[in-house]
Nucleic acid binder design. Structure first.
Lengths: 129, 129
DNA sequence: TCGAACCCTCACATCAGTGTGAAGGCAAGG
DNA sequence: CCTTGCCTTCACACTGATGTGAGGGTTCGA
């Protein structure tokens, strides 16, 4: 699939698809004429990248963890040459992600609590007034 | 408390404390000589802001939700003049935050699963070798 | 064969968040 | 009084993510 189609199917501007490639997040093939040729799975990859970027991860973090995020099923990864160094690095990323989750969840709860406290009138009048 | 102390206690450079004020996130008093005078609660406020920024929220989003995040206890807020418009806006923010959480949790799980799958040797040799 | 709609690279611009330094006022201690 | 260290504003610069446009090649249908 060419870049235009991938852009249409993901809603991500072509500019960004090229940028993600430049950042080492995508690795499309090239056809004879130099056009980028994306695999079908790129659609999911791009959505993955978008979600992580929106969640405050940098392209650098994403680049390092992306190889270990393929699918929920496939585990086609270099299990052997995973140095303790890399493992520790991954664990660090996990921790940072967890910290973000905690922070976001805490604030989501506060916002929800506020909304709930302020308007306890969902859709029908159940108390007299 | 003056800006230097707040900076020391939060680990956030004074430059950023001034920036957050410029963005409407902090509202310190001023002493006679023009120095910023922060309340004790500013320490928590700043940590709150940092967490949200790290989690990918913009200062604009933070500015709009911050008034509704005071403490877990206090609900000193303008409960009355909360227009349905604002409520919907808040709900939108909650939804976006939830989406981020989902995305992060999903990827955290994948990373954890990978690590767990790849090194099932915690600390002792339990199998012969 | 021509034009529309793709694709390419290159490069400058914008925005938010942040670093850094200049130029100067205020406060406290030797 | 003078130094030291805090504070003030102003302003320029950088980075990462993104927008936008110029200049030019490719594909395809009328």
């Amino acid at each position: 699939m060419k870049i235009g189609e991938l852009s249409r199917r993901t809603g991500v501007p072509t500019r960004l698809l090229r940028y993600y490639e430049e950042q080492g997040l995508l690795h499309p093939d090239r056809t004879d004429n130099g056009y980028r040729d994306y695999a079908e799975s790129s659609v999911q990859d791009v959505q993955q990248i978008r979600g992580l970027l929106d969640s405050g991860l940098t392209t650098e973090m994403i680049r390092t963890i992306l190889p270990y995020l393929s699918g929920p099923d496939e585990i086609l990864l270099p299990a052997e040459h995973l140095t303790p160094r890399t493992a520790a690095l991954l664990q660090g990323h996990i921790d940072r992600i967890q910290a973000r989750i905690d922070c976001l969840a805490r604030n989501r709860d506060r916002l929800s609590a506020y909304l709930a406290a302020v308007r306890p009138e969902p859709d029908a009048e159940m108390v007299d007034r």
